[in-house]
Amino acid sequence: MDETSAGPGAVRLVHDADRDRYEALDGDEVVAVLAHGDEDVPAADGEAPGLRVRDLRSTVVAPDRSGTGIGSAIVRFALDDIRGQGMVARPTCWFVRGWIERHPEYADLLESPAHPRDEEAR
């Protein structure tokens, strides 16, 4: 399980790969979750080998923690993890999409139009 802290006295951020999710923990209490799914996208003719895509599906923050920055912290943690693994991201979650729009330094992680989700098999 990958782990980091989101600042002094703040939550711990972890990647629970067995459960396909990132978590923000306050002690043993889960206060936020970012669910994901992984997919291999085959290469198109003449392209480099296929990509591993992490679909960021849903972000949920405990209501009493809303507005405290935990959602942003867990998205940044997930995207940094994706970058570190050489993967690309598909932000199907509206919160993640909006966060990336406000942080263009992460736009290079987005799945390219050459590998769209619903593309017909060639």
Rank of each mutant, 00 (worst) to 15 (best):
M1N: 03
E3I: 11
E3K: 10
E3F: 01
E3W: 00
E3T: 12
S5D: 11
S5V: 13
A6L: 05
G7R: 07
G7H: 03
P8H: 09
P8C: 05
A10M: 11
V11W: 01
R12Y: 01
R12A: 15
L13S: 12
D16T: 02
D16E: 14
D16L: 06
R19M: 12
R19G: 09
D20N: 15
D20E: 15
R21C: 13
Y22N: 02
Y22E: 02
A24Y: 00
D26Y: 01
E29T: 13
V30K: 00
V33L: 12
V33M: 12
L34K: 02
L34W: 00
H36D: 06
H36V: 09
G37D: 06
G37S: 15
D38P: 07
E39S: 14
D40L: 14
D40Y: 13
A43E: 13
G46I: 01
E47Q: 14
E47G: 08
A48W: 02
P49I: 08
V53M: 15
V53S: 14
D55N: 15
D55G: 08
R57I: 05
S58A: 13
T59Q: 11
T59S: 09
V60I: 13
V61K: 02
V61S: 08
A62N: 03
D64T: 10
R65K: 05
S66V: 11
S66H: 11
G67Y: 01
G67E: 08
T68M: 11
T68K: 10
G69R: 06
G69W: 03
I70R: 02
S72H: 04
A73I: 03
I74V: 15
R76S: 15
R76M: 05
F77E: 12
A78T: 04
D80P: 07
D80K: 06
D80H: 04
D81W: 00
I82V: 15
R83W: 00
R83M: 05
R83K: 09
G84V: 06
Q85K: 13
M87Y: 06
M87C: 10
V88P: 08
V88Q: 08
A89S: 14
T92K: 04
V96D: 05
V96H: 04
G98Y: 01
W99R: 04
W99Q: 03
W99D: 08
R102Q: 13
R102T: 10
H103S: 09
P104N: 03
P104I: 04
A107E: 14
A107F: 01
D108V: 04
D108Q: 04
L109W: 00
S112D: 14
P113E: 14
P113F: 05
A114V: 07
H115Q: 10
H115S: 09
P116I: 04
P116H: 02
P116S: 12
E119C: 07
E119K: 12
E120V: 11
A121D: 14
A121Q: 13
R122L: 10
R122N: 10
R122K: 10
